[in-house]
Design a protein around this nucleic acid. Structure first.
Lengths: 198, 198
DNA sequence: TTTTACAATGAGTAAAAATTCATTCAAAAA
DNA sequence: TTTTTGAATGAATTTTTACTCATTGTAAAA
């Protein structure tokens, strides 16, 4: 008589997705504290009540997105931990970043979300900090190996790693702030400070 | 019979300074919307009421800090507009940035404040956007001149400028988020992608 | 010791935002 | 056409936060 279980499931899945996309957009632009649930519901095109049927609190919603972002960092770390040519791994990574940053806002949103997490809903930064540390360590190891192979410039691998990810972070922020005035630098430019010669 | 005018003035100046420093700290970490006046007053070590005697609203306080930051960008733009050797101007600038970022939080706070302004209290982004555009244009002109002189790498000057400031922006964010785990990259590393050879 | 001028306080009020819940809606099939 | 089930709504409630103001504190000098 009513809809089938599958139909209801599909309905729920669809609205969850709308909520997630809207929340990602709003949180990335305003941060956790300044974003209000009305904004999110409106952006998602649903009522506030429905949002609360899917997410007990604003914070639970935020956390889910952060966890998603952290998982992305984990995948990045794995790539850096692979035994392939450091130069190739970094170039490929930079190339993908370039494509993602050029084609839409998703990566930029994710990057900003992560950095905003540190400050906001108190405590429980471990997840993001842990994954971040893992990713940075993997990248630093890769750079060090590249230096031993003579392909990479000399310099403190930790500082070089930090600069690389800081640049990505800053580009994400600028992309959202500048809108159409933003020009994504090429993957080669992004990695130029790492490699020897040009 | 009561204190002299000068004494009262000095008292007011001192608390204003406390408020500004506290607000800079809190706004940079939380953004305008998420920062609450209680936090600011507490950080400044004064009462809420006193804060409101000095600043009519939270937004007025925020604006004053943003204007201060914008003035800093204006000074940076002037330096980029000077006719000196591009390589020298950029190197000096990077060196100063390195010193500021290494010695305290002030520059990091200012950088973050500016990027947070874009989203937050609606409208009136002109000041920050205008100064930002001026600074970026000046830097792009400098890079272009450096390319003509053969000192700088080839590449789109706008994209190179964007990357440079994005890196600063990202480093500021990381400095606040990572605390003692942060390592500031050297000025040479920061500008390595701009100059030919190493 | 008292007066004076203004800084400083913080409980109280108003406004904004998060969260709840009684009610409505919509599609499937009997 | 009616029944059924769970999604969807948004006005009402609770909580949080910005902002006010009546009162207190204090150093100088009369």
């Amino acid at each position: 008589m009513p809809r089938t279980k599958e139909q209801y499931e599909e309905m729920r899945r669809a609205t969850r997705e709308k909520i997630q996309a809207a929340a990602m957009h709003v949180f990335a632009r305003k941060g956790f504290g300044a974003a209000n649930v009305q904004d999110i519901a409106e952006t998602a095109g649903i009522s506030i009540g429905l949002m609360y049927r899917h997410y007990k609190t604003k914070e639970v919603l935020f956390r889910e997105l952060v966890e998603f972002a952290a998982a992305g960092m984990g995948r990045a770390a794995e790539r850096f931990e692979s035994g392939d040519s450091p130069r190739l791994v970094i170039s490929n990574f930079a190339g993908e970043v370039w494509r993602d940053m050029t084609s839409g806002d998703e990566l930029a949103n994710l990057l900003i979300l992560m950095s905003r997490y540190a400050a906001e809903p108190a405590g429980e930064t471990e997840l993001i900090v842990g994954q971040n540390e893992r990713m940075m360590n993997a990248a630093a190891g890769l750079i060090q190996r590249g230096q031993q192979l003579g392909e990479f410039r000399a310099g403190d691998p930790d500082a070089m790693t930090l600069l690389f990810f800081a640049a990505l972070q800053g580009l994400a922020e600028m992309k959202l702030n500048m809108g159409s005035r933003f020009v994504m630098p090429s993957a080669e430019l992004l990695t130029a400070f790492l490699f020897k010669e040009g």
